[in-house]
Amino acid sequence: MGVKEEPWQTAEIAGPKKALLILKPEVVAAMVKKAKRPLIVVGHLAAEDYSEDAKMIDYAIRMSNAAGIPVVATAHVVSEFIKRGFSSATHMPAMDIGDRLADSEWKGLDGNGPYDLALFMGLPYYMEFVILSGLKHFSTNLKTISLDRFYNPHASWSFPNLSIKDWKDNIEIIVNKLGGN
């Protein structure tokens, strides 16, 4: 397991402010529990990567079910949620949800107020990179977590670059700590 703050795409360097490394998955679970208004944003790769027994989308569903976190499905991935019997995902282009999250006046999907924590997974690496950057610079009071198996430096917290196995072990712990099984 690599533990460096090193972007997956070599040249996508960020800073001075960079994502803190998630070294203990329990911390993510604690942050989610502590958050008043968390949200999961899931891109189309969630249904494609990483392997048959470790698909991001399945973990997103388990997290959402366990902790009651709303899901925004970007691009066409909403169809994959439906295939899996998960019908409560809101579908919205990645740029639209990024734009709304950057707006501190936005009242959220349910009209109940802004979110304080957004968890991202399954967007193309570079697209997630720039959207997280937009949020780092322009959102107030929003923290972001990248849950892909790559270090994405514009998030507030991110995994380091991980093997599929290590990623799976980590995300399992998060889901379990949130009460999912």
């Binding site: 800073g15 001075p16 402010k17 990024g98 720039v130 950057s133 937009g134 780092k136 610079h137």
Partner: peptide, 24 residues
Amino acid sequence: YKPFYLPFCDVCCLCTFGKCDLTG
């Protein structure tokens, strides 16, 4: 149609005052 900015880079290095950290 309001701009949604997606900075590719956190700093500016266009003049010798810089690099300037423009974060947040």
